[in-house]
Write a protein that binds this DNA or RNA. Sequence first.
DNA 1: CTAGAATCTAGTCAGTGTCTAGAAATGTAG
DNA 2: CTACATTTCTAGACACTGACTAGATTCTAG
Lengths: 199, 199
Amino acid sequence: MAEAIPRYHHGNLRAELLASAERKLETTGVQGLSLRELAREIGVSHGAPRQHFPDKQALLDALAVLGFDRLGRELDAALGEAEGAFADRLTVFARTYVRFATAHPALLALMFARKDRPDAPELLEANGRAFAAPVALIAGAQAAGEIDSDDPDRVAMALLATIQGLASIITGGMIGDRPVDAVVSGTIETLLRGLRPAR
Amino acid sequence: MAEAIPRYHHGNLRAELLASAERKLETTGVQGLSLRELAREIGVSHGAPRQHFPDKQALLDALAVLGFDRLGRELDAALGEAEGAFADRLTVFARTYVRFATAHPALLALMFARKDRPDAPELLEANGRAFAAPVALIAGAQAAGEIDSDDPDRVAMALLATIQGLASIITGGMIGDRPVDAVVSGTIETLLRGLRPAR
DNA sequence: CTAGAATCTAGTCAGTGTCTAGAAATGTAG
DNA sequence: CTACATTTCTAGACACTGACTAGATTCTAG
């Protein structure tokens, strides 16, 4: 915290830019994120950020990678502690993911903004690392026969789609005033049991 | 047609702005959409769009409403023709939605960009109209006992989440080279049957 | 201590969204 | 047909942005 005297060499510009950018991102969205404004707030000239990020997109990409890292750590932590049946651990995964999505909606959007970033190997890597634990969870459950594995790929896809869709729907504000955790566990339960009525 | 002589009064500026904007949107994304550039292409001064849209967000909102209208028409048409069991009609819904999502990813993102538009009644209305047919489909199936209705809300939520998630995953390019229609119908089948192994 | 590299400043440029005043076309009474 | 009011468009301006450049300052090896 020694922000007292603004030295010529800031010393920690890159990290502070990222921190400031992430703060701004969640309050104003990507549209309202301005490199010049960040520089102004930090107390540095408008050209300084260029030394660390060649352009604005590079800053956004770095933010996305940090987001994947953080998400990965949260998933690892949550799933590391989770014990019990597959259903319970799956619910933990869903809740952790949804919690991250609601806590950092703009950041999550940035992470999956593949529209304009067709190729970004670092992002793909970060993505893979982040979801390592849940992927292992699913694979393990299939190997142990806890879930259907006629077509493992299909089952995994349905699972990920549902959780991703949950996050979309919740961050989109489409669940009204329903309690988030109840919606999440209810959806997981429904998914496990199937939509068809029990005979 | 008849673009020959650029008259002072364009006569159809609003509609042409929307058409041009939608075209540009899918090629360059929201970021690359510039009011001035649109005006330039249409051959009108940079201030002209302001007569029809007070600001850029108004143009984007209008685009989103048009998107909901179009999606609604496609869903109505597809579900109107669909016959057979609930599972089949559900698959038709999912395919139609996913097809729309892949055909107009940027437009869809705009439609659900609630992040910065907390309240926009016209968008909510358009949203409701667009999904009238699938909502009726689900309600009907629950009434007819074709799907579980212990908690209708929960079931509907799981269904919509899965389909929305499918669209996200597919437009995000996360299905690799798997055939889209197979992924869609496989996911729906898995959802109907449930993840737990058949005893 | 001193060169060279890394970092930051300051100035510039084209481009953008928004705002204004006013010109031009259209519609509407009389 | 004419006069007027309204709609639609033009033209100029402003503050802002991301990007580029040259040069000043600081840090760091050797």
